[in-house]
């Protein structure tokens, strides 16, 4: 705190960038979490994750502008609707890939991402659609060292709670225990009378729902754009490579940490803010190829 003014840096701006970094970190965490859970059970890297995140934001936009349903219901409705869409994808397409090489899952979901993004681009162009911050979260607070827009603070806190709840669900409940068991050995879990195919579908729905929820949260901050998830998903891939997909908590911590680092870079060396996560990925690969928390594969 005392060093920063010496460097001639207005702390207002620095904390503003840190907050933005935390928000991006929250999205990285929620998306990489979903990717990790899906990969664990389906052995598929879901390239469509960015497109589904975008669908979450568009879903909130339609709910508001077509049906007059506001932000709060959208937080629940949009993830469920996109989650159902995801489950349909899993039932109709992804499930046929079990037993095939992982790469086919990547290619199939890449195709799905192209279709979804292309359709939205046709109807909405590439520019952003505004989504208003709900009245309850408008305005800001003066914390003394910085001005905190309430909505941004809300996004950080709420995403953190969602991430921790997901962690709790998977690591600490009976349902999660079944899920982890099915990740290790689906055949054996099936022999115990658990409906693994249904579990796979629901897991995919859960991962997709998390992505859609991140999309809804981001709508008032980043506007609603058809390509909002296309570049994000590549950064999230780098996050996944850095953190590894072995642990849920690892995904959460890596996501937030990288968001903060990105925020700091945006402040101290803005030219590198787009690339810092990729550079970190290269460094991690050189020093610890298996990723920070993952097992070597």
């Amino acid at each position: 705190m005392y060093v920063i003014p010496l460097l001639g840096i207005p702390p207002q701006v620095l904390f503003g960038q840190l907050l933005l970094g935390l928000i991006n970190g929250a999205f990285y965490a929620m998306l990489s979490l979903g990717l990790a859970v899906i990969f664990g059970l389906l052995n598929i890297i879901n390239f469509a994750h960015g497109a589904l995140y975008m669908m979450g934001a568009f879903c909130a936009y339609f709910l508001l502008n077509v049906l007059g349903i506001g932000y709060w219901p959208a937080l629940i409705v949009a993830p469920i609707m996109v989650g159902i869409f995801g489950m349909i994808l899993e039932r109709t397409m992804l499930q046929w890939l079990s037993g095939l090489d992982h790469l086919y899952g990547l290619l199939l979901t890449f195709g799905i991402a192209l279709i979804v993004q292309g359709v939205f681009q046709n109807y909405f162009g590439s520019s952003g659609l505004p989504y208003a911050i709900p009245d309850e979260l408008k305005g800001g607070m003066n914390l003394g060292f910085m001005f905190l827009p309430i909505y941004r603070g809300w996004v950080v806190v709420f995403s953190l709670i969602v991430c921790l709840l997901t962690w709790f669900l998977i690591e600490r409940t009976r349902l999660g225990a079944n899920l982890r068991a099915a990740t290790e050995n689906p055949t054996l879990v099936r022999a115990f009378g658990i409906n693994v195919p249904r579990m796979i579908t629901l897991t995919y729905g859960l991962g997709v729902g998390l992505a859609a929820l991140a999309g809804v949260l981001s709508a008032p901050i980043n506007q609603v754009r058809p390509l909002m998830g296309a570049d994000l998903i590549i950064v999230v891939f780098a996050v996944v490579v850095i953190g590894g997909m072995g642990s849920i908590m690892g995904s959460i911590i890596t996501g937030f940490a990288l968001g903060i680092i990105e925020g700091l870079t945006k402040y101290f060396y803005p030219e590198a803010s787009n690339t810092v996560v990729f550079v970190l990925m290269v460094l991690v690969l050189l020093v610890k190829p298996s990723g920070l928390t993952g097992r070597a594969t």
Binding site: L107, L108, F110, G111, I112, A113, L114, I115, V116, Q117, G118, V119, Q121, N122
Partner: peptide, 8 residues
């Protein structure tokens, strides 16, 4: 783009 996706 959509057609490419469908081909994929």
């Amino acid at each position: 783009t959509v057609i490419q996706g469908v081909i994929f």
